[in-house]
Simulated scan of single mutants.
Amino acid sequence: MLEKKIADNPTDQAAVLDYAIRVDNLANPRDDKGGDAPKPANYEELIGKAETAYKKAIEMNPADATANFQLGALYFNRAVVFNKELNGLDSKQQTSPKAKELQGKVEGLMGQALPFFEKADAGFTAKASSLDASDKQTYESCLYALQKIYAIKNNTAKVEEVKKKLDGLGAKQ
C-alpha cells in the first residue's frame, strides 16, 4: 500500500520517510516487551529497501534531521548486531579471521552512520527550542549513538562535547 502511495507521489518526502521507517521496523521487529524479536527471513531485502528510501528522503531534503538520524540508526543498529556476535566469541576466537571480519564490519558501519548522525545533530540543534517530545527523544538517541561512535574512535573531545549536549537536553525536559 505504501509502495503504491510512493509510486503515485514520488516527490512526497514525508511519505518516502514514513515508508522507510515502516520497512525498517518490519526488518527489526520488537516483542511485547520492546526487546528484539527474531529477524524475518527477508531481513536483507527489507533493510535494502529501507536504506534506499532513507537515502531518497535525504536527497529530497538533505537537512531533515529525522531522515538523517534514521539512516544513521540503520547502519548503527547493524553494527551493534555484528558487535554482539564479536563479543560472543570466546577468548581463543578473539584473534581469529572471523573476529577481524566482524570488527571490520562494526567499524565500517559505524563510519557509515557517523555523518548521518552528525547531520541529524546539526538539524536538531538548529531547532532545539521548538523540538516536540518525540523529536527530543530522537535527538537524545542520536546523541547517545554519536557518543558511542566517538568513544570507539577514541575522540575524547567529541565525547565530552556530546555529553554536554546530553546534559543540556536533560535539563530542558
Rank of each mutant, 00 (worst) to 15 (best):
L74G: 03
G108H: 05
A99S: 14
F82I: 04
K56E: 15
N28T: 12
Q13E: 13
V162K: 08
F116R: 07
N25V: 01
L71N: 14
K4S: 10
N42M: 02
K163T: 02
L2T: 02
Q70Y: 03
A126K: 14
K158E: 09
V106D: 07
A50T: 09
L146A: 05
A122P: 03
G108R: 11
M110Q: 08
I149N: 08
D8L: 15
K163N: 08
K153W: 00
G108W: 01
D135S: 15
A7W: 01
V162H: 11
Q173C: 00
Y144H: 09
A145R: 15
A157G: 04
L146T: 07
D12P: 01
A67V: 04
K172I: 14
P10C: 07
G108M: 02
L2N: 12
K55I: 04
A79K: 05
G72C: 08
F117K: 07
A113H: 05
S134V: 04
E44D: 14
A122M: 11
Y54W: 06
K105W: 00
Y54F: 15
Y150C: 10
S129L: 05
A27V: 13
E160I: 12
V106P: 11
Y75I: 02
G35V: 00
K55N: 04
Q70N: 15
S129Q: 13
L146K: 06
E101P: 08
K153Y: 01
Y19I: 02
E160L: 11
K33A: 15
D132P: 10
L169H: 09
D8K: 13
S130A: 10
A65N: 06
K105V: 05
K98G: 00
Q103D: 10
D31C: 07
L146H: 03
A126N: 13
A41F: 05
V23H: 04
D12S: 10
A14C: 04
G48W: 00
T66F: 02
I149Y: 02
Q137F: 06
F124S: 10
A157V: 10
N154C: 03
L146R: 05
T52C: 02
A53S: 14
N155F: 04
